[in-house]
Design a protein around this nucleic acid. Structure first.
Lengths: 228, 228
DNA sequence: CTATATTGGACCGACGGTCGGTCTAGACCT
DNA sequence: AGGTCTAGACCGACCGTCGGTCCAATATAG
């Protein structure tokens, strides 16, 4: 039928993942069939299964690539000697949150996709992996903070895990309002109240100075709001 | 082929849901086919789709039934005039947690099922629904507590939501240890530390007296641990 | 030219769901 | 009481789609 087009291994693989990302974002993982992906890329079944053992492995690879990208940015911006714990914490939130804002045009699509009902698996894999990667980083930051006497907690490890889980919570809680069609004064107030309460809870949990986290979070939120 | 057996509408429907519950618990929702359910109940395809519009509607009904049961218990044990906010809060945790301990023999199966990878959808639907139901109840309790000057927060509504979400977190965080084959001293310590930190975080969030929630949680945990 | 990596698409069983039709309990007649 | 009628419980062949397998055909490297 069609002329065959040969590509280098990694190139093809990336091409498939890229196509899948867009399809998953638009239709959701479960509702996107392997055939949809084939059609989009312009390849046959055999080709797909030459690169991925299953549909789920494709998802896994995609998620891995996405999280690796974010992690890289975060690590780079934090691994600087002489940086204090509070700054690092601020950077952690800013960069991991900012990775979204970076490709702003995709944010809405991806956001809607991730927080839509039809993408449970994708969201779960993304979140689980992020938490697994970020928890040890956050643990180190908290430990450093305790040494610097700016944080005060007995269990940095557990606190870090709980904070990461709560980060997911606040995102999920705020997502419906952020991705709503209209973002009016009323919605903004709700969002701000939630961020404030959440920041406060975390400050208390690790014994951070009052307002230290809140100020970062509010700045991030305002930045995002104005970019809309 | 088979003799026809006639049943009353609700009876048959319950029968199907009961069979599905066990199958979902053992194999997971996605891996249980409609045909599996049919075989178990001893009915034909058409009969199933006479009662449920889809496989997912079956899941929805099941989840609805389960949550309604728990909600009933909670409501009954809390809706008593003259009960103070702290007692109500304690009851809320005890009863909603105790609903599991009640049918102890199912707990392990259901627990493993809910917290297994293969039951994302079931877990999500169960959790989402529980949160939606319990949040307003918890909001009222917090409001009452603020009036009684035993709690101190400006945003009872948001605090309630965050607490419910955090309840899910602590459950998920602790589940792998609780449902582990062996529950040694080391695991117990981890679990206790998590519960303690979590209780503490919530106490601080709603300005509850130190230790007020922790004591309830620890009692619940010990009760469960000894029942194993 | 040979060996290997890559590609194409026919093919498969299992899945969720549809459909036209059968059978019977119980309400309603006479 | 016995006869008739009908709502709705019940059946299973059938459908399109899915993820996944298989192997022949082809391009490229050496």
């Amino acid at each position: 039928m069609n002329k065959r087009v040969f590509k280098k291994h990694e190139e093809r693989k990336d091409e498939i993942m890229e196509a899948a990302k867009e399809l998953f974002a638009n239709k959701g993982y479960e509702k996107t069939s392997v055939n949809d992906v084939l059609k989009r890329v312009g390849i046959a079944k055999g080709t797909f299964y030459h690169y991925f053992r299953s549909k789920e492995e494709l998802l896994e690879s995609m998620v891995g690539k996405m999280t690796d990208l974010i992690t890289g940015h975060v690590r780079k911006s934090i691994d600087q000697p002489g940086m204090n714990a509070l700054d690092k914490l601020s950077r952690l939130f800013t960069v991991s949150g900012g990775a979204k804002v970076a490709n702003k045009k995709y944010l809405n699509i991806i956001g809607k996709a991730i927080y839509s009902e039809s993408n449970l698996l994708l969201r779960q894999k993304l979140v689980t992996r992020s938490i697994r990667i970020f928890t040890p980083i956050l643990t180190d930051i908290i430990r450093q903070g305790v040494e610097e006497r700016v944080f005060d907690t007995e269990y940095p490890e557990e606190a870090a895990e709980l904070i990461m889980l709560m980060a997911r919570d606040i995102n999920e809680s705020v997502a419906p309002y952020i991705f709503a069609k209209e973002l009016g004064k009323k919605e903004e107030e709700i969002i701000e109240r939630k961020y404030r309460l959440w920041s406060d809870a975390i400050e208390r949990m690790i014994g951070a100075p009052k307002g230290s986290i809140e100020s970062t979070m509010m700045k991030l939120w305002e930045e995002y709001r104005d970019a809309r």
